[in-house]
């Protein structure tokens, strides 16, 4: 099996200058957990809902709610994204992708084909593969 045999999550693509608040809204709308950041056609990073959540100030912030909202429109995705995300190609053998994800302790890989982002391979996508390949148990 290769990566392209697997169902991939279609990618949400953001520009590096997208504000954090806009990014948060877009990601929530799509119901995904990650978005890729592309600059002039080149993959530059990946951003997760977790990273956006971590960027929020704590409850003890000395800023007002309004100030926080304002700041978040000025902070951009490029400030918070993970640069150089792990990439696999559609023809990568699936076991190599699984090994990479497990050993690098990430839960998403970007699938690229000659510099074009084709999709995301998430841990959930791989768990669904296991669901499909697990043998039917003798006992129900």
């Amino acid at each position: 099996m290769r990566v392209h045999d697997c169902h991939l999550t279609p990618p949400l693509v953001l520009a590096p200058a997208t504000s954090l608040s806009a990014a948060g809204r877009l990601i929530a709308l799509q119901g995904v957990s990650h978005a890729v950041v592309v600059d002039h056609g080149r993959l530059v990073g990946i951003i997760s809902t977790r990273a956006i959540g971590a960027a929020q100030p704590s409850a003890a912030t000395t800023l007002t709610m309004g100030e926080v909202r304002g700041r978040l429109t000025q902070i951009v995705v490029a400030d918070v994204m993970t640069r150089d995300p792990l990439v696999v190609s559609p023809t990568t053998p699936l076991q190599d992708a699984v090994r990479l994800m497990r050993d690098a302790r990430v839960n998403v890989l970007v699938v690229c084909d000659q510099d074009r982002v084709r999709g995301l391979l998430t841990a959930n996508d791989l768990l669904r593969v296991l669901l499909a390949t697990a043998p039917i148990a003798a006992n129900p």
Partner: peptide
């Protein structure tokens, strides 16, 4: 926790 963005973290 506090923000991971330095310009916001200073207010945390």
């Amino acid at each position: 926790g506090p923000s991971t963005v330095p310009s916001l973290a200073t207010h945390d």
